[in-house]
Design a protein around this nucleic acid. Structure first.
Lengths: 248, 248
DNA sequence: CGCTAGTTTGATCCGGGTCAATGCTGGTGG
DNA sequence: CCACCAGCATTGACCCGGATCAAACTAGCG
């Protein structure tokens, strides 16, 4: 039942992705809304010393569930999917990390989920030990991290409402609104254009739907003049209709 | 679709629940595994000064989604359900708080979910402002809180796997195993007896099933000699069978 | 131009939702 | 002590939405 075909990520050692020195963090596009926002100029210099910029091709892995958590990441561009795979082969995506999002600090030493790039992406990569050392010396960063964790928890709760037993239209409509909100936060403007860089399978594995139902539902919404389907995303035509659907 | 009948909590002002002074925190049954575990003897005295013990009758509310978060809670006995209600009336339980669990510190100032007592329960109640002040003076408590938040996030991810599109048997089996694990943590021993103090409706609203399906599935498991149904919970008869089912 | 991966679309089936009746249990008052 | 009642839980009959299986289509890309 509902197995996710071909979800195997590309196993690629980190060394094969580009690793370059972090420069001008101050001009970083995600600076203002990522965890770094609480660091002042001089802290930022120290911070950039311990991190490296890493580039990831589509499907390449940031880390895997069950493995030692030896590095943490701050996404700067692209889209990273966080997921767990059930014993039966089904994949549940437990979150999409957008630019500015922070990931890789699990409860213990072991990653509790896997993460890979849905599309070509960049992230700042910090060795765990160095990051924890820095954290020790900058307690206000811990407060910011705690904030990030509680808001990640709130988003997970939001997702619980979506994944549960709701109609496919409602799930898709909520998903569109969620992505609209989250991209608005990154791009700085609300726009009827909602980028959906992830594939249909990813949307399905996030919402608990099959690829077939995702496709059917999107096209039903298109027929009803609620959205337009464009390459790499959708355009909201009738926002009220989408909002109404999302309620059920 | 799947509306939750009669989920209205009892609206009861906090003042009507018993509020007594916190005494001998050192002998508190949940001390060793709750957030207080990081506080030493003298810290604990200060901490107990700002809190009060509150008792809650079944269905009485700790706090409501959307309201000002003016107090945080540490459950000491009973069972607290955390939930959100969708516009269509369906209730999604986003977590059960067992003795030792901590709740009530949302991302912002506003509660992002509601919480009420599933059965008669007790909790330590701390005014938000006083708690944050104490937190300011005890940075290691913040580290413990961050730990609690990340592990709550991991549990939420776990729940996402359960709520998704799985067979009813698999959901129920996973739920039984989850509750077994969590009670073991509280009681200090693993036991084939798994207390389920919450009602069928609560289990359904946690897993995304109807009351009818929960009941049917439990009785199917009983017919298959996998469990026994006893008052206030179940007894695992064939653990292997349950574990096998939980995988699918 | 043809290959491949992803997407769309159709036909069929089944698990679990819905509706509704019945059963059980514990508390209350006569 | 028992009749009654209210709140859950159980059980049955039926139906529908979305999963499944499979085929056709499309868009990049070498």
């Amino acid at each position: 039942m509902l197995h996710s075909p071909d979800i195997r990520p590309v196993l690629r050692s980190v060394s094969s992705s580009t690793l370059t020195r972090l420069e001008n963090c101050a001009e970083c596009p995600v600076r203002s809304f990522s965890i770094c926002s609480v660091l002042d100029r001089s802290d930022l210099d120290d911070f950039s010393d311990i991190g490296r910029r890493a580039s990831f091709e589509p499907r390449s892995v940031l880390f895997l569930e069950g493995h030692q958590a030896d590095a943490i990441f701050n996404v700067t561009s692209g889209l990273v999917r966080q997921y767990r795979v059930l014993p039966n082969g089904r994949r549940q995506i437990v979150g999409f990390a957008l630019p500015g999002d922070f990931l890789g600090l699990p409860p213990g030493q072991i990653h509790s989920f896997s993460a890979d790039a849905a599309v070509a992406s960049d992230a700042c990569r910090f060795p765990r030990r160095a990051f924890l050392g820095f954290l020790e010396r900058h307690p206000h960063l811990l407060r910011r991290l705690h904030e990030a964790a509680t808001s990640a928890l709130a988003i997970a709760h939001e997702q619980l409402l979506q994944v549960g037993p709701r109609h496919a239209d409602a799930k898709i409509a909520s998903f569109i609104l969620l992505m609209r909100r989250r991209w608005a936060n990154v791009l700085g403007v609300v726009s009827p254009m909602v980028p959906l860089p992830m594939g249909r399978q990813d949307i399905g594995d996030y919402l608990g739907l099959t690829i077939a139902t995702v496709s059917r539902t999107l096209h039903r919404l298109r027929r009803e003049q609620a959205i337009e389907i464009v390459s790499g995303g959708i355009r909201i035509v009738n926002l009220t209709r989408i909002e109404r659907l999302a309620e059920f």
